[in-house]
Design a protein around this nucleic acid. Structure first.
Lengths: 396, 396
DNA sequence: GCGTCTTTGTCCTGAGAGTGGAGAAAGTTG
DNA sequence: CAACTTTCTCCACTCTCAGGACAAAGACGC
């Protein structure tokens, strides 16, 4: 099917599209309240957007004490694809232009199988969503990968946990297959954008979004925009030294944060503890499943297992220590904790908070909320849709 | 004397003023090459700037193969005052509108004497510069203080090393006394702006500027702009934990970076070493001067004293470790080392580089210069002048 | 049911912003 | 001294944008 190809012709139109995306259907009068334009000029730009088809009339709204307004809204037929490639699974979702999720699929998959296999999977999931009637095609797609990305080109660079992906033209290839514009970013940055768009970080301009999953990363939002760094590796905090002369890490150094606490490290420590007979709870789970994951530790902790609680607390202390440093450095207005280990819940959060509030200066922590992400596994795909919509809703 | 009060009327004029500030006298044609405006429109805006008096004609330039151009330049009578209040001294300088230093005074002074005493000193230095004929008055002033600042209001907040300054209306008071607009910022941010304007960081959009003096701070420039954080305390890295259970720090915690390495810590360690008889060089200097400073350590190191070199190396390792973490997190394109201890020179730099290159990921360090600041003690005052000129050269 | 008030949206006019070309002014070069 | 360059100014024309007048459509009080 032929998809929309129109783009806003100027900054005003871009602004209007974003207001409609974030605020849903609106009348010209309501739009006028939110934008610095005369009614006449605004009407002209809205008419032009109607001509492009990006925006459509949406009937009459209720009266607010006078003539009823004619609402307009983003074309309800627009479809964005949000893809979140994690280390061990793939999430794919369809959204409308208002970034509401219409359908969401998740599939376990090891990113190390390489770009070709993963791509095949993503395309099949996208096709499945299309086949279920949620979309006739895609107007744009955003995709997140678990490693640094050369953002302007949309190409992963030197990704430690993604052998085979280095230099793979993700943007180019996906755009070719889907026949629509594509933007690529680090998965952590997308999670931050997701929480900023629809989660706990709404209306916060400077915040950190720490994602603890198989590895650890940190999305940085400064002045409302994602900070990616000069080579796209900003936020790569997994290899900050957390313990002097600590555990050996896959990167070759010792004591990296990721070696001491992450989904993978936690699972390894839990198995160790079970084998050493420190926890019956963990041992029986190990026996039953053959292996342990962060989910098992969470369950054991919920059941009151002291060893599991200790593991979580110790890990939280490590992460908290590093975050404390980042808070001193960056002075954010909010810290969001997300990723797979959020299942560890309040125990983890309490440990992190303790460290940060104790080690950072009062001025930086005085009014600093440290909270769990609100969107869970949908943060990434919403962020991905947001990424491509920000791109498409900007002047060409 | 009546000073200039005009401000640019629109973004074009602001852009032109900044081009003239950074590029010196220019013809209309040269300006046209650097700005996206038609020659006719550009001529109109230049004429309006001439009318305001901010810009003046500057005679004919050499021919470039055709008609000679009529240069324009910023009014050579404009004067900015740059003030850099350090922990132990005050720098005051006069610049022209192109931010060239016309006169510079330095005066030892303890910031703990409080805002009233320091202000008196600053005003007397400003008057001295005026009396020497360098300025008939000031069109604007920038001032840096060694602590966090609520930037929009220009008021220091909860400054640990500046008791008595909390909430003191620096901007308001100085503006009153000098009769011109004033902007206030953290001294480290100003140093970063100085190096960005006229030093090693020219044309770098994302960099860190670590200032090691009495304390330690870090200026953060992201996307060309200084990142100040939500409460103005961004870059306050002196109290990041560098050594678990390390030395007690004035802030109440243990192992803070500042407690292990800074001008003050280095002097203390040197005295200790001298008293323990570890270094004859340092001991003789202690005897001679009654006390030791970073300058003594630098001299001892230059003379080949092993103990002094060890102190510097160990300190550099500590700082380098912290910077390594910040590099992983922020992924800057450049790291500038400045402040009082730059006298320690290459020994310090080598230790820092070793740590950063060893601990951060190759992608972040692959093309990362770590260099000493170029401007020395003038970085702060140039940054201060730049701060106020950025303000005055923006539309009102 | 009817006039009055409020809200919404459209139309029109006039002020500026901005472009691009013509052409004058002032050089260089052979 | 002719031909070519570069710089700058002037002018006509287009486009943007604001703000007021006005029409449409509803709420509300009497």
């Amino acid at each position: 099917m032929r998809r929309m190809t129109a783009r806003p012709a100027n900054a005003h139109q871009a602004r209007l599209l974003k207001l409609l995306r974030d605020g849903g259907p609106n009348s010209r009068a309501q739009l006028g309240d939110q934008i610095d334009l005369s009614r006449s000029k605004l009407a002209v730009e809205v008419d032009r957007l109607l001509e492009t088809g990006l925006v459509v009339a949406d009937g009459l709204a209720a009266s607010r004490g006078g003539r009823r307004s004619h609402n307009v809204r983003l074309n309800p037929g627009l479809r964005f694809l949000g893809v979140d490639i994690g280390a061990t699974s793939v999430d794919v979702a369809v959204t409308n232009a208002e970034l509401e999720i219409l359908g969401h699929l998740n599939q376990p998959m090891d990113v190390r199988e390489g770009p070709v296999a993963v791509f095949e999977q993503v395309l099949s999931m996208a096709a499945k969503l299309r086949a279920s009637g949620l979309a006739e095609g895609y107007d744009g797609a955003g995709i997140g990968v678990p490693g640094p990305v050369r953002f302007p080109e949309g190409v992963p660079v030197a990704p430690p946990i993604m052998p085979g992906w280095d230099g793979f033209p993700v943007r180019e290839a996906l755009s070719q297959e889907l026949g629509c514009p594509v933007m690529v970013d680090n998965d952590v940055n997308l999670m931050a954008m997701g929480e900023q768009h629809a989660g706990v970080a709404r209306s916060v301009g400077d915040f950190l979004c720490v994602k603890i999953g198989t590895g650890i990363g940190c999305g940085i939002v400064a002045g409302g925009d994602v900070h990616r760094g000069v080579t796209g590796s900003a936020g790569d905090i997994g290899h900050i030294q957390a313990v002097p002369d600590g555990r050996p890490c896959a990167c070759g150094n010792r004591g990296c944060l990721e070696a001491h606490f992450s989904g993978a490290a936690l699972a390894r420590d839990a198995v160790e503890a079970a084998q050493q007979g420190l926890s019956e709870e963990l041992a029986s789970r190990l026996e039953a499943g053959g292996t342990l994951t962060a989910v098992d530790v969470a369950a054991a902790a919920a059941a009151g297992d002291a060893t599991a609680l200790d593991l979580i607390r110790e890990g939280g202390n490590r992460v908290g220590q590093v975050i404390a440093g980042l808070v001193s450095f960056f002075n954010p207005g909010l810290v969001v904790i997300g990723g797979g280990v959020t299942g560890l819940g309040h125990t983890l959060l309490a440990a992190i908070r303790t460290q940060v509030y104790r080690q950072s200066l009062p001025l930086a922590t005085g009014n600093l909320p440290i909270v769990l992400g609100e969107l869970g596994p949908t943060a990434g795909v919403i962020g991905a849709a947001r990424l491509i919509s920000d791109h498409l809703f900007s002047p060409a």
